[in-house]
């Protein structure tokens, strides 16, 4: 038996990403519907690279105001004070509170930028037709998909801090504009990850194997 593998794409078959059924599109068609679960089918997610780039660039643009603008404004008798995400991290840093500070730092600052860099790397490597470390790249994509939701932590922190601390005129906390941009970064990076198709990572190698076989 030859080591060469055969993919659904090479055999002209659609693999349903919802129910897993393999099926053959009508003659000459590139799109179809899954006869089992009714999902719209294509060989690869439609315009995966363009859509992922679009969401990713939008996320990168929102990342700047998300970090520069304040996310919370605290009003006390002494006046109003606004904090950005990073200032929130620093405020939380104390001999007992540092683990939480670290969680916010990782979830709100490192994960979003890490996701943007990782997806950009995957997109560029796919566009260059890379065949190197495919398994690792698929795993990286899996991590980006899995970890993305945790960036929402800061949105929840600010939401529940603001809804609880309403002790006028002593002290009141309200969200600020940075929170909207930060929430946008989280949603946009999640949409970017969903638009990407990990099978694109393996396609160049599959083609090479066919040529050698």
């Amino acid at each position: 038996m030859s080591a060469a593998v055969s993919t659904a794409l090479q055999q002209g078959l659609h693999s349903c990403r919802t129910c897993g059924l393999l099926s053959r599109p009508a003659h000459g068609e590139v799109e179809g519907r899954c006869p089992r679960c009714d999902e719209a089918l294509a060989f690869r997610k439609p315009a995966a690279l363009q859509r992922t780039w679009a969401f990713l660039i939008a996320a990168a643009v929102c990342y700047i105001p998300a970090n520069v603008l304040p996310v919370l404004t605290t009003t006390t008798a002494a006046g109003a004070e606004s904090d950005t995400i990073l200032q929130g991290v620093i405020l939380l840093w104390s001999p007992t509170g540092w683990p939480l500070s670290l969680i916010v730092l990782i979830a709100s600052i490192m994960i979003p930028i890490g996701k943007i860099i990782a997806l950009a790397f995957l997109l560029i490597s796919v566009q260059q037709g890379s065949i190197k470390s495919n398994e690792q790249r698929v795993r990286l994509y899996g991590m980006v998909e899995f970890i993305g939701r945790w960036s929402m932590v800061d949105v929840f922190v600010d939401t529940y801090t603001a809804s609880l601390v309403q002790l006028q005129p002593l002290m009141a906390v309200e969200p600020s504009a940075g929170l909207v941009f930060f929430a946008a970064v989280v949603v946009l990076t999640m949409l970017a990850a969903q638009s990407f198709d990990p099978r694109l990572i393996w396609d160049p190698e599959s083609e090479q194997e066919v040529r050698h076989a």
Binding site: L91, L92, G97, L100, I103, V104, A107, R149, W150, M152, V153, D154, V155, F156, V157, D158, T159, Y160, T161, L164, V165
Partner: peptide, 14 residues
């Protein structure tokens, strides 16, 4: 699960 983590952080902040 993400919300719970957020609420715990908020709780300790407050």
């Amino acid at each position: 699960e993400v919300m719970i983590l957020g609420v715990l952080v908020a709780l300790i902040k407050i």
